[in-house]
Amino acid sequence: MSEAAAIEVRGLVKRFGKFTAVDGLDFRVERGEIFGLLGPNGSGKTTTVNMISGLSAPTAGSVAILGVDPLRQAQAARRLLGVVPQETALYEELTAERNLLFHAELFGIPARERAGRVSAMLELAQLTDRARSRVGTFSGGMKRRLAIARALLHRPSLVYLDEPTLGVDVQARRVIWDYILAMKAEGRTVLLTTNYLEEGERLCDRMAIIDHGRLVALDTPAALKARFGSSILELELQAPPAADLLAAIGALAGVRELGADGERLRVTLAAAGGGDAPAAAVPRVLAEVSRLGGAVRHLNLREPSLDEVFLGLTGRGLRD
């Protein structure tokens, strides 16, 4: 084994009494990647991450972050980890500056470095002019930025964000995405849980989809869509198609479903296997149309969405 993975999870199980919240998870997060944990409410994301950060002890299996056991070498593990909890966990009665200073003290940053780091983090969070304001007076977006700045203050190698954009407006969401991409650019590993597929797609190098505490799929967003998604090809022909044309298209590899309404055709495309994207069937459909004398007036291809991937894999949507 050359280098320890950023996170290595093996046979992870967590039971609360008779209820199994996490059921034999295995995955590996490589250094420097942004890794997403996706799952519906109650699927075990937070439980998993609590075991990764050492807040909770596994019933079975093991966790290592950069080769360190988060329970047995807790102090070392906590230094490696920067956490942005879902509920931000800031001291509302204290100022932004005081919150950061306290974090610096807890993490043993030497006194002479503290002021410098704190002001750099205030700068990063764009809160320099609000440094002396009570956090209780901040908007949700400001609090989230401050919580992110705080997590980065001790320069962790691994940053974990729980639902980082939940309840944040669209503009603030883009700012937070930029922070997360910047973390990756600085060489940090990022683990994030999210309910938003768009977020996972935009940010994540790889995503693990979990349901009922089990790993359902793990891959890059593009590969997940290619493997489990379906595209819809809408065609409008010059004339209503003949029966032989419909039969020919329906028999093509990668075509899952076919509907006709006058000159309009609705073709549902699915991955044919061999790593093909659903859209790989488009040229084959068009070739059949021209071979059998049809002419296309209008064409529209709708790409698969991760929502569909999700629905297909788990049989339910992401949010209740």
């Binding site: 070392a76 906590r78 956490v83 909890p85 966990a89 306290f102 974090h103 993490f107």
Partner: peptide
Amino acid sequence: ESGTIKELLLAPVP
């Protein structure tokens, strides 16, 4: 109540 117990529990202090 404020959730800041996490800040204490995730800090490298006994």
